[in-house]
């Protein structure tokens, strides 16, 4: 099992404190996450999104932005759960 996400205690450098105003992309992915894991759509759970993100390769986990990771995970879950057929989405593959 990948432990890429299990970062607590690992050596790491200075923290970049630069602020970032969420982009329209960020906000829409955030909204999708809230809605698809929410009681109405209930398409999948928060824990399933986490499990999917945590199974990413290091190239994806560290190479994608936070909201790119969420979007990729939710796209994979929509296929896994049978909401859409495989091949419906062009899901970018990690290069490493």
């Amino acid at each position: 099992m990948s432990r890429t996400h299990d970062l607590g205690g690992l050596p790491a450098g200075k923290i970049d404190q630069t602020e970032h105003e969420p982009t329209f992309f960020d906000k829409r992915v955030d909204a999708l996450y809230a809605l698809l894991t929410g009681p109405k759509a209930n398409a999948f759970t928060m824990d399933e999104v986490r499990r999917t993100v945590e199974s990413f390769s290091e190239a994806d986990y560290f190479g994608l932005s936070y909201y790119e990771r969420w979007l990729k995970a939710m796209s994979l879950l929509l296929i896994e759960k049978g909401y859409v057929e495989d091949g419906t989405f062009d899901i970018p593959q990690a290069k490493s």
Partner: peptide, 30 residues
């Protein structure tokens, strides 16, 4: 790699978001 969290999404992800939103709307999920 340097975190992309301060950046705009890459075009492939912007396109994926559009695809996902359209499919969810077409299927009356969202």
């Amino acid at each position: 790699p340097v975190s992309r969290d301060h950046s705009e999404p890459r075009p492939a992800f912007a396109a994926l978001l559009d695809q996902v939103l359209k499919v969810l709307d077409d299927k009356d999920i969202l």
